[in-house]
Each structure stands twice: as C-alpha cells, then as structure tokens.
Design a protein around this nucleic acid. Structure first.
Lengths: 190, 190
DNA sequence: TAATTTGCCTAAACCGATTAGGCAAATGGA
DNA sequence: TCCATTTGCCTAATCGGTTTAGGCAAATTA
C-alpha cells in the first residue's frame, strides 16, 4: 500500500509537536500512528518502544533548549547574560510546554551523558562566570538557578500563577533581578 | 467470599504507600487491587476511576504536606521559620517521593480550591510576614520560594545533584540562607 | 430468622503496547 | 528492463490495564 515515509527522525519530530499539542504523557505510539495514518505496529521498526519514543523526544527538546540558551548568552555577561539565559528558558517552556516536560523525562545515566544535558551545565556555569563565585558557591548557584527556572516555569505553566496579580511576567522579571543581586553578593557574611 | 474490607479511605492510603514504593505513575487500580488481593473491578465501587484514585492520593499528600509545614512554622519567625518551612518541604519530598509527585498532580479548579492548596499559600505568606515585604514583593517572594523549593526537590529526587560535590544537603542549606538574606533586603535599590 | 443492603465476584468490551510473519513497493545491480 | 534483495507497512495475535453490568453471598437490620 501507499508508503508514508516513516523515519525515526520524522516520528520524533512529530512526537515533539504532539507533545506540545496534547501533552507529553499523551505522546504515545498509538496517537502518533493515528497522526501519520498508519497502524501502530508500523512504528516499531523505527522506534524500539514507547519509552524509546519518549526518550528521543526528550533528547530533541534538550538539544533545542540548549541551542536557544546558547544563542541567548552568546556575547553577554553578568546580569545581561543571566536575564537572557533565564528568558530563553522560560520562553521555550511557554512556547513548547510538551517539549519542556519532555526535557525533564528521566534518562538513564549513559543516555543523559550523551545528551545535551552537559551543555546545559556548561552554559549555566558560563553565565555564572560573570559573578566570579568561588567553589562551592558556584555549584550552589548553579543549583539555585536550575531550581528557580525549572520550578517557576513548571508552576507557571501548571497555571499556578494565573488568576492572581501581579502577572507572571512581572514576578519573573523581579525574581531574575533579585537573583542577580544575590549572586553579586554571594557569599555575603551571614 | 472473604471480604477484605475495602474503603475509599483504605484504598487512598494504600495508594499513597504504593506511590512511594513504585512511583505515582504506576499507582493504578490494577496494581492496587493486586496489593489487596482482590479483582480490579472491585475497586470501582470505592473510587470512580483511575483519575479519581490519583486525585485522592494527591489530596492526601497536599494535606499531609500542609500539616507538616504548619507544625514546622508554628512558633517561629524570620530565618527560623523560613528554614523550618523549607526543611519540612524537602524532608517530606525525600521521605515520600511518590506522594510528593502526587501533590503536583494537576487538579481542576474546584478540586484545587477545596484542597489544602490554599493552606499552602497561607503558610507561605505567614513565613514571609517576618520579612515585612510590601506588595507586590510579597507575592514575588511567594512565587520565588515556591519555585525554589519545588524545583530543588524535584531536581534532587530526580538524581540531578547526585554524583557531584558538594552534596545536596549543603547546597540546600546555603540556598535557604541566601534566600533569607535576599528577603531581608528586598526590594533593594537596583 | 427473614429482608435488605452491600461487597466482591465473573464476564465482557475496549484500548494501548508489543511481537511475528507476510506481501508489496522501492532499490539496485545485471 | 528484469530479477533479486531490501525495506516499509500491514494483518494477526497476545497481553495487560480500564471500565461497566449483573450476580451471589456475606453482613446488617428488623
């Protein structure tokens, strides 16, 4: 019968779009097959199983996010880099909620090591270089930024900040500003 | 045949334990039925469906977490209250990973309003009262704390901070200390 | 003890994941 | 161009989870 031209590549790309439309959890072989107008079984020559599909979407999202963040911080430093980094993260999450969820899909150790995750770490550290923090504070700071960014955006896209003033954008701006202040004075004498 | 004595209450409690043992995602009617030694269909007189079961576990977790947080901040203020609040949150998440995941299960608006979620908001605000922040900064601060706590603990239990020094406890302590400093000086002149 | 309620069962339909095996379309020499 | 091979999607089947309908026996109440 008519061949549709399935590819691992095309499946993963479509899976990412599907995730943004209906949610990462709902991004299943069955749904994807429906999207392509083929039988579910036909996907199994291109992806190993449902977990493999999700993992590949996660890897794609991690790459995309790292690309955006990378562009954002290029040529910037200090508060400027921090803001650009933060916004890149949040903008991506708001524009691509399914992929953003995918990016936090648990990967096993080897897969994670081969993913864009190390790039994220390096970018985070690069942003912090402008603040000249001594270890272990640079690591604390990395963890703080990772927590705030991922936490804020997760809560925001779950609707946590809707229906209440001030709007989510304003809090975000102030929080990033406050983090900049904090980083410039860390570790302050307690 | 022998009656096991199923109850919505008992199912939800067992569901919470199951979540901690095998993960919230895997907390399904089928698994729960196995646990009680009954047929899956037998659960359906006690919970409406799989989503209802998960929602009830989520509500239980939110209550438990609010109880702990409430006890933790009682009689404390300032940095003391902040630290106790933060630790209550993290300790619960580490001790009960499945329930903690459950606590972030998306609830529809009415369910959320009838849940312990508003208590969480009030507790958060109570902790911030010690810092005497004017609006909109108190709201920004609530969102910051919520983001950091949920973000940090999520990343930590996903293994994000394992296999690297300094250990997660140390970063946590420093981050909470830094947040205290930040809150005491917010909004600083930029 | 008889009547009623209630709890768990069996049976069955449906759907998603996954594997095995088949056939037709594409590909690539001769 | 024709044949051989590869490859892509299909059918068929199994398995397991979700959910509904209806039945029977245990618990409850009178």
């Amino acid at each position: 019968m008519a061949r549709v031209g399935l590819t691992t590549e095309r499946l993963v790309r479509a899976g990412a779009e599907l995730a943004d439309e209906i949610g990462f959890e709902q991004t299943t072989p069955a749904e994807l097959a429906r999207r392509f107008g083929v039988k579910t079984a036909s996907l199994y020559s291109h992806v190993k199983n449902a977990h493999d599909l999700k993992t590949r979407v996660a890897l794609l999202a991690l790459e995309e996010l790292a690309d955006r963040a990378s562009e954002a911080v290029a040529g910037r430093s200090g508060a400027d880099a921090l803001t650009a980094f933060a916004d890149a993260y949040r903008d991506y999450a708001l524009a691509h909620p399914g992929r953003f969820t995918a990016a936090r899909y648990p990967l096993d150790e080897e897969t994670a090591a081969a993913s864009a995750a190390p790039r994220h770490s390096r970018l985070n550290r690069a942003v912090l270089r402008g603040y000249d923090l001594a270890e272990p504070y640079e690591t604390h700071a990395m963890r703080l930024l990772g927590s705030v960014f991922s936490g804020y955006v997760t809560l925001e896209s779950a609707g946590g900040f809707a229906r209440s003033a001030p709007d989510a954008q304003e809090s975000w701006t102030e929080i990033v500003r406050a983090l900049d202040t904090l980083l410039r004075t860390w570790p302050a004498a307690h």
